[in-house]
Design a protein around this nucleic acid. Structure first.
Length: 214
DNA sequence: CGCCACATATCTAACGTTAG
DNA sequence: CTAACGTTAGATATGTGGCG
């Protein structure tokens, strides 16, 4: 952990924290609306079902309300909230692993909560894997994109968990490296290595598909 | 069971590139 | 130039399967 010079730099963050501290319901609801789905995806990195991820995030929101008084602003509010989610999801995952060791290694329906075509491709210049506006393209190109993204998702699922966590947080959630280090408790260097390995493996797994459709 | 060889994962320490 | 980032190489740790 290091000094965060830009703590509270997001415009209005101090006001937001103050509002949360005086239990301003509308401020809290706005916060939930803005971050809930993102936090579920972060939680989903650790636990193996959407339902559990949802529970974890519900708990995390309560923890945010309880802990907001103790929030020191060392990191951004977003980072702080994400680390709460990550910590809770991690301990929940450990608990789940103890009680049902082999449970949902694969999820039967496998239907993503969000259409994967809504993400940018991994080589997007600014926000690889992040949200994109629905592209208006020809149908076959759209289909190819959809297949590619689906393949990417499956490739990510096969990665070792540390690599999977890093690549999801960085490339899907668009978290900064600092946020990822904090959430996962890894060093910056290691985080970069994990990210690089994860990307390399995904690339390798995708290569035949991309070559076929080149 | 212990021991060994092998594969894979993880980590640190470099180096190269690039934006500010 | 410097700081941040991606990449690579090499060392170490951990997991796995065969063998006596």
């Amino acid at each position: 952990m290091r000094e965060v010079t830009s703590a509270g730099s997001h415009p209005g963050e101090l006001e937001l924290v103050a509002a949360l501290r005086r239990r301003d319901e509308s401020a809290f609801l706005a916060l939930v609306r803005r971050f809930h789905s993102s936090m579920v995806r972060v939680a989903r990195v650790f636990v193996n079902s959407d339902a559990v991820a949802d529970e974890v995030v519900q708990e995390a929101w309560l923890a945010v309300l309880e802990g907001i008084g103790a929030f020191e602003g060392r990191a951004s509010l977003r980072s702080w909230m994400f680390s709460i989610v990550a910590n809770r999801a991690r301990s929940r995952a450990l608990r789940e692993a103890r009680s049902e060791p082999f449970s949902s290694f694969e999820d039967p329906e496998g239907e993503p909560t969000v259409d994967p075509a809504r993400f940018n491709p991994p080589d997007h210049p600014r926000w690889p894997g992040h949200w994109c506006s629905p592209p208006e393209r020809w149908a076959d190109e759209q289909l190819l994109l959809k297949e590619t993204v689906e393949l990417t998702k499956r490739a990510i699922d096969t990665l070792p968990s540390a690599q999977r966590q890093v690549i999801v947080l960085r490339d899907v959630e668009g978290c900064s490296s600092e946020e990822v280090c904090e959430a996962l408790g890894v060093s910056g260097g290691n985080q970069r290595v994990l990210l690089h390995r994860a990307r390399a493996k995904v690339r390798a797994m995708l290569e035949p598909h991309l070559r076929r459709n080149a």
